[in-house]
Design a protein around this nucleic acid. Structure first.
Length: 438
RNA sequence: GGUGAGGUGGGUGAGAGGCUGAAACCAACGGUUUGCUAAACCGUCGUACUUCGAAAGUGGUACCGAGGGUUCGAAUCCCUCCCUCACCGCCA
């Protein structure tokens, strides 16, 4: 942990103090029981204690510093005896200070532990609810659903039939959940990555190619640690984590930074493979590309002025909508309910694509406003026009996650003798049809 | 993997036990002046926590990579760790 992590999350405490009602309402949405809500009062009380102990300690240290100065001066003017007497006095103060110091450290670490366990407070308009079933359909699909030929196949069978993805070989080389793309399957993957990056660049996002492994500080910064430790692949020998999303390395580019207000918004995009252990989720919906340990994703990340973060969220949602439309895929947008939202998010919209052969909605994008939650952890700030420090707001979204998009593309566009690709991809793939002879 | 050098404010970089929260320069910001551009000059210019104050502000504490130690007193001395750079080896 570096020093940033040692800083207390003051701003969060301020919210608990000043906007307690909002905090309570928000945490209730996340399913906090009345009992668990007591943590708010505990945190405030502990923070009061912290202040008190800090003030006491400062008094002691002040006295020590003053006397030390005096001792120095006495020695200089040759009054060694008096100086030595003062030394004894300082000794007593030091002991008192050490005791206080220990108490204060304990208080701080208790407080820290509580604050780290506290999720972001959902935005007021986040729907009530506990489970994915409670998510609100924010925008339903009002277009047509694809009509499939008789004997339509799910994507894993199409992938095999046209030799696009070899799941067995991936499992042989690595393990299940690590698909091996080949031929036009591999080329389609590369085409989609390029297409998404180009679209993001056109929308003003700077392209980044970040490291695919991150250290623990970075994982804490975006909130993967300690909350989702089990979801990440960890390399013990080097103390590094494989990225579960480009959000982690990209957002951490600004960890600890004070940016100038005129730099905002900062818009970044990055492609990375994403590695997820998905512990405990085996068994349901794991067929084919529906849930894999490694998939490709283009992410967009934005650092924004607090006053504009919600219009930016909307702009990101629009960006992803355009991508879906350009790929001619049926999709819907869900507004996640309090119980289903990620730990760090204040509002999240999920995009789901309709994969016609499976007749399933698959999540392909998650667009979130974290408000100041991540910025507070990472201390990403700017000076406003009054010269006051403020935390930026961070947002990000998948634009888009590939594996499930590929699943839907294959299933929805299948014909009797092949798969037809949407026109926007043709310049990227170099082919518009995947036929049986491949 | 081996060897060596180093980590100081937005940047460069001095400081080598008390006079240092830290010189100087650059950048930034505010201003003066010059017909424009450029330049010159003056001023401001770290962060966090906290006391008192309605506020402007004021007092205190901490921070010179991180953690620990020595000392009345540490950026400065000692120990541990981390990181960076250079050279060699290996390698896409």
């Amino acid at each position: 942990m570096d020093d940033l992590e040692k800083l207390l999350y003051m701003l969060e405490i301020q919210i608990l103090r000043d906007q307690k009602d909002r905090a309570i309402a928000g945490l209730k949405k996340r399913g906090f029981s009345d009992e668990r809500l007591l943590i708010i009062d505990q945190i405030v009380a502990l923070d009061d204690l912290r202040k008190d102990q800090q003030t006491q300690l400062d008094v002691q240290l002040n006295e020590r510093n003053t006397l030390s100065d005096e001792i120095g001066n006495l020695f200089k003017s040759g009054k060694a005896q008096e100086a030595n007497q003062l030394k004894i006095k300082v000794q007593a103060i030091k002991e008192a200070a050490e005791t206080l110091e220990v108490k204060l450290q304990q208080t701080k670490s208790d407080l820290d532990a509580m604050l780290v366990s506290l999720p972001n407070i959902p935005h007021a308009n986040v729907p009530e609810g506990r489970t994915p079933e409670d998510n609100k359909v924010h925008q339903a699909w009002d277009g047509e659903f694809p009509t499939l030929p008789a004997g339509a196949l799910p994507h894993w069978e199409l992938a095999e039939k046209y030799n696009l993805i070899d799941f067995k070989l991936g499992a042989f080389i690595t393990g299940s959940g690590f698909p091996l793309y080949r031929g036009k399957g591999a080329r389609l993957q590369r085409a989609l990555i390029n297409y998404f990056l180009d679209q993001a660049r056109r929308a003003g996002f700077e392209e980044i190619l970040p490291p695919f492994m991150v250290n623990a500080d970075s994982a804490y910064g975006t909130g993967q640690l300690p909350d989702k430790e089990a979801q990440m692949y960890y390399m013990e020998k080097d103390d590094l984590y494989l990225v579960p999303t480009a959000e982690v390395p990209v957002t951490n580019m600004y960890r600890g930074q004070i940016v100038s207000e005129s730099d905002l918004p900062i818009k970044l995009t990055a492609y990375t493979p994403c590695f997820r252990r998905e512990a405990g989720s085996y068994g349901s919906d794991v067929k084919g590309l529906n849930r894999v340990h490694q998939f490709d994703k283009v992410e967009i990340v934005q650092f924004e002025h607090p006053s504009r973060s919600y219009e930016t969220l909307q702009a990101m949602v629009n960006h992803v909508s355009h991508l879906m439309e350009s790929l001619e895929l049926p999709y819907r947008i869900l507004h996640l309910c309090g119980g289903d939202m990620g730990f760090t998010s204040a509002t999240t919209y999920d995009f789901e694509v309709y994969s016609a052969a499976q007749q399933k909605w698959l999540e392909v994008s998650s667009v979130s406003n974290f408000e100041s939650f991540q910025a507070n952890r990472m201390k990403i700030r700017f000076k406003d026009e009054k010269g006051k420090m403020q935390l930026v707001h961070t947002l990000n979204g998948s634009a888009l996650a590939l594996a499930r998009i590929v699943a839907a593309l294959l299933e929805n566009n299948q014909t009797e003798n092949g798969i037809r690709l949407p026109q926007v991809l043709v310049p990227y793939t170099g082919f518009e049809f995947i036929g049986a002879e491949e």
